[in-house]
Nucleic acid binder design. Structure first.
Ligand code: MN
Ligand code: MN
Ligand code: ZN
Ligand code: ZN
Lengths: 160, 160
DNA sequence: ATGTCAATGAAAATCATTATCATTTAAACT
DNA sequence: AGTTTAAATGATAATGATTTTCATTGACAT
């Protein structure tokens, strides 16, 4: 069953992202070997505007306003498609529902405020290198990693 | 409903862990402000022997053999208690069920083989320091982090 | 030994996500 | 432009992990 609950819209500190037009969206869909449907284009539009890290539920609710004809199964399905094709990155924080973002050119990890939900994107080349060194030490072929930092942001620390 | 399915028992490369006796288990339970029950002692016993990183289901099934009177609600409940008291550490890999381990003295992160499920524990002081630096840069008070490396272990790479 | 309140276990509920399936539709082909 | 057909959709049911409920049991302070 589908809830329609408002999630608080918290701040994000994002790395640069270039805007994308409808034609590019269609191209992206074709590149995945999928048919171009209005639902898929609308999903990509919705993801490219507003909050970068969005849950499937939030995305469905956002879409539901302008395009009530889109079912949430389609949202989940297409998010999965895009994740498999690395067009979208799935971010899991703790045991919470997965959040999704259009994969930017630049790799990054996340710093999360456990009080207000603020998300900061960062990249640290030294950490990346050290990760490779660790994998090498144990003779692993490194294919991916998850680095999530948790803490309290400045505003939350001050306002208490 | 409760399944009784065998999960494959994969290798682990663990940091040192000192064995714990029943009296210590009881002490741990009392320190959490909880009553000492046989169920809780049995859960701690089961966790201290065998695979270090175990799911709630696996733990329940393991216990079920010797102590069929223990319900899985109790297993979940006590794991949650212990996690909140940092006696147990919850490890989440991808979208898979959470795994639990008795928190060792030494902090560590994990390197996982995505083929065979092998888990290697490691600690890297330089990465820890760099994480602090990142948090500081964004004026966050760092309270925790998740670092999981994914890859293919040597054996899996060879046997393909 | 007794009383009290926490703990337990069976079962139902919840939450996120995935699968099913009848219907619609994109797009390849006349 | 009309026909064909497999892919896509959306309503709904199903799933899997975890949590909650609630009647009963048990730990432990007195
Ligand atoms: Mn991001
Ligand atoms: Mn570990
Ligand atoms: Zn904050
Ligand atoms: Zn392996």
């Amino acid at each position: 069953m589908t809830k329609l609950v408002k999630g608080k819209q918290n701040k994000e500190v994002l790395i640069e992202r270039e805007p994308i037009d409808i034609e590019s969206f269609k191209k992206m869909i074709r590149q995945m070997g999928l048919k171009v449907t209005k639902q898929r284009v609308h999903i990509l539009e919705a993801m490219s505007e507003g909050r970068a890290h969005i849950t499937a539920q939030e995305l469905f609710e956002k879409l539901n306003k302008k395009h009530p004809e889109i079912g949430f199964a389609t949202v989940y399905r297409f998010l999965k498609n895009m994740t498999e094709h690395s067009l979208v990155t799935e971010v899991r924080m703790g045991g919470f529902p997965a959040r999704y973002e259009l994969t930017p050119n630049q790799h990054h990890d996340h710093l999360n405020c456990t009080r207000c939900g603020k998300i900061v994107e960062f990249e640290n080349e030294s950490i990346e290198e050290l990760q490779l060194a660790v994998a090498k030490k144990f003779k692993f072929k490194l294919t991916g990693h998850v680095l999530e930092l948790y803490g309290e942001c400045e505003q939350c620390t001050n306002k208490e």
